[in-house]
Simulated scan of single mutants.
Amino acid sequence: MSSVEERELAEVRMIEEGLRSVYDGDAEGVIEAFNGLRGFAINLVNLNITAEYELDAKALIIAMGDIGRETAERGMKTASIASALALGEVVVEAADRERESLALKALSVLGNLSLEFGRKNLDAAAKSAAESLGNVGKASSRKKMEIMTGLSEVYLMRLAMKAMEENLSETWDTALNYLGEIGVSSAEQGIEKDAVGAAILLEELGSAAVRKQNEPRVKSVIKTLGKLGRELFQMGSKNALVQTVWALETLRILAKEQEMENAVSAGKRELELLSTAGILDEEQNLEKIQEIKEFHRQILKRG
């Protein structure tokens, strides 16, 4: 038996062991299986990729997602957390090695799994997935991988939406904070589209919170936007700052219409701290933002 055949057989056995442990309710066995599968996947990422190796790696990543969904179905908290951590490490490794095809596949599996955790009301697992998505977004921005960074933002926004629906407070806070951090990281790397994208998605989250009459969530989005805006102001990232100010003003007005006085006050305070009077009136800036919004809409569709 060749070394490749031995590796493939070991992978199959580990997948079977992971599923068997899930069905037996053996969380430690599932965690051990994920550690092994993560190692196999990272090894494949670091090989000189051939078509065969890439297919093998993608099949392995899909299997990890399948096992993760089974843990969610059975409410296995620690095993679900392990699945999010393992997939997150695979995505980051693939991004660091600039294996974009594998990174995108693993990110897709992780993003969809995070939403499954949200649907099953597994706050700790969903929070862990949010952390993994956030780390992926920041790692991708450092590599200037625009699509990867944008998709990470989209998955975090969707997870935050689910967290708001299911009242998963830890997941909400984590997803929100990482969205802002990815925006800052993108601006630092000069990836304007993803810096603007973070502000756009935060505005969408805030608008959804207004529609749900959830003032505490509106305030938390406003504070995140304010923090992002101050970082962007320091870096001179003008277009992203324009979008952030635009988002803050939009949320302030929406909150005012719904008589959310605390959110209105928070919005006004953050706008004053940014000291950006007149920035929304610059026609050239607004035209640029529309272009970037259209780009981000395309990213959202692919996500």
Rank of each mutant, 00 (worst) to 15 (best):
L156S: 04
M64V: 02
I191N: 10
G65I: 02
R7H: 13
A57E: 03
L300Y: 10
M235N: 09
M157C: 12
V22S: 07
S2L: 08
M157G: 09
L251F: 05
E52K: 10
G226L: 02
T224I: 06
L9M: 11
V210R: 00
I182D: 04
I299F: 13
G65K: 00
L228G: 04
V91G: 01
E188F: 08
L179D: 05
M157H: 12
Q243K: 12
I42Q: 08
E73T: 10
T244W: 01
L248Y: 00
G303C: 14
E282I: 15
A175V: 10
G134Y: 05
A130V: 07
R119H: 14
S101Q: 14
E54M: 12
F117A: 04
D194A: 11
G278F: 07
A195Y: 08
I222S: 03
G88S: 02
K127Y: 00
L159C: 04
D194Q: 13
A124H: 11
K301L: 10
E291P: 02
E188H: 08
K143S: 00
L271S: 07
K193V: 13
K227I: 15
L37N: 06
V154T: 12
V91M: 00
I182R: 03
E146P: 02
A59R: 09
Q258T: 06
M1A: 11
A79H: 06
W172F: 14
S80Q: 07
P216C: 03
I81S: 10
G36F: 09
S108Y: 07
S83A: 08
A277M: 07
L151M: 12
A198V: 08
A163G: 14
K223A: 11
I62M: 14
L179P: 07
A163C: 14
G180E: 01
Y178H: 13
Y178L: 07
M148H: 09
E17M: 11
L202S: 04
L107V: 00
E204T: 13
L201Q: 11
R297V: 06
E93A: 14
T50Q: 13
E153H: 09
T250A: 06
A199Q: 04
L47E: 15
A51F: 09
L248E: 03
R7W: 12
E166G: 04
S101C: 08
Q213R: 12
S3H: 13
R99A: 05
K293G: 03
Q298L: 15
E294R: 12
E282D: 14
S220A: 01
S108C: 00
S21L: 11
L273I: 02
A82P: 01
E215Q: 09
T276Q: 14
G180K: 00
F233D: 15
M64D: 05
S220M: 01
G267P: 07
L254R: 13
E166Y: 02
L151N: 09
G25H: 06
